[in-house]
């Protein structure tokens, strides 16, 4: 949980994101994905409950929540891999998702390759499945292999590749047909560390060219760094969604990051302090509603504690998530006990 308060506060939204504009005009354009009151049960277990979701075109959208919260099921419903029990799904405004398949690139959490095929055969095959002509698929595959430095391995069998190389091929196969909507389920988990940056670069490039990017993760900090929008799911239900900036704004600024030497007794002020999270180098303090930060500062100074940092910060997404989940009567930790239900 290396996310520091500083970066949470100061990380600027890169200016090149077309998502910014897309967000502004979201009211006018059709959303890339729209879910309405989706419900899905597997036997006795509810996987998704009353889920509404709208992913603006051109945005980077994070679907976050612990393992087993219903992220994968939601994604499978969006892509019409499984049908919902009730509710409606539209992709680029169309309810016939089958017709939109060619515009979607999907990388599931469990992603495999045909071990006995050669790299180039594999890429061309997947290009064809996404509606490309054989010849075009081959050209694009060669270009892509050149880009990721695997051109000389094109005629090797997939089984002879290292894990990291196989991951590169999986990514390339996902974006080969230049999808307008990229759906990535836990894209960075289990990834070769060297590949993480490469893949971020590859998907962000697609997004920069106007594609919408939706990805799920159980690492909230990943989403906080990359996304413009988030939807938080816990225990099959949506807890919160919206633009990250709005979400944080609504949560208010009542978090203080404090670094100090000596006695921490000044933090024991039940009327003032709601919660203290010790991060080692600093503590993150949440004040009670309506409490004045100046009051806490005064206590510290009067108590003789030396402060090297006393900073009002935005709450991290993690804090907001835990708050909202608790408010909704859900325990996110409990939710993570369940395994993701397949199918």
């Amino acid at each position: 949980m290396g996310q520091t308060a500083e970066s949470g506060q100061t990380a600027p939204l890169p200016t090149w994101r077309p998502g910014l504009t897309a967000g502004i005009i979201a009211g006018v354009t059709t959303p890339a994905i729209s879910l309405q009151r989706i419900n899905k049960r597997f036997g006795k277990k509810t996987a998704v409950r009353d889920l509404d979701l709208e992913v603006p075109q051109g945005s980077i959208y994070g679907l976050i929540g612990p393992n087993g919260a219903g992220k994968t099921t939601s994604i499978r419903i969006m892509l019409d891999i499984i049908g919902p029990d009730s509710g409606s799904v539209a992709v680029f405004g169309s309810k016939n998702i089958e017709a939109e398949r060619g515009r979607i690139g999907y990388l599931p959490e469990e992603r495999g390759l045909y071990a006995k095929m050669t790299v180039i055969e594999h890429l061309v095959f997947f290009g064809e499945l996404r509606g490309m002509k054989r010849r075009v698929a081959r050209e694009e595959a060669l270009k892509g292999l050149e880009q990721i430095g695997l051109a000389e391995r094109m005629n090797d069998k997939v089984e002879s590749l290292s894990k990291g190389m196989a991951q590169k091929i999986q990514f390339l196969a996902t974006i080969l047909h230049k999808p307008e909507l990229l759906v990535l389920d836990e894209p960075f988990s289990g990834l070769d560390p060297l590949n993480v940056d490469l893949f971020k670069g590859m998907v962000l490039e697609r997004q920069r060219q106007g594609a919408t990017l939706l990805f799920s993760t159980h690492l909230i900090e990943d989403a906080e760094r990359l996304c413009e929008y988030v939807c938080m799911i816990a225990g099959a239900s949506k807890v919160l969604d919206g633009r990250i900036a709005d979400v944080k704004g609504a949560a208010g600024r009542n978090e203080i990051a404090i670094s100090y030497e000596g006695d921490g007794a000044f933090l024991e002020a039940p009327g003032l302090v709601d919660r203290v999270a010790d991060h080692g180098q600093y503590v993150e303090v949440r004040l009670r509603e309506g409490a004045d930060p100046q009051e806490l500062l005064r206590r510290a100074v009067n108590g003789g504690t030396r402060l090297s940092r006393f900073e009002l910060v935005e709450p991290s997404l993690r804090e907001i998530f835990i708050d909202k989940a608790t408010e909704a009567g859900l325990s996110p930790e409990d939710a993570s006990e369940d395994q993701e239900v397949a199918a």
């Binding site: 892509l79 891999i81 398949r101 979607i104 999907y106 990388l107 599931p108 469990e110 992603r111 495999g112 390759l113 045909y114 071990a115 997947f126 499945l129 996404r130 196969a173």
Partner: peptide, 10 residues
């Protein structure tokens, strides 16, 4: 080989 989900999404 975990490939089937990519298949049925296509």
């Amino acid at each position: 080989s975990d490939i089937v989900e990519v298949m049925v999404s296509s």
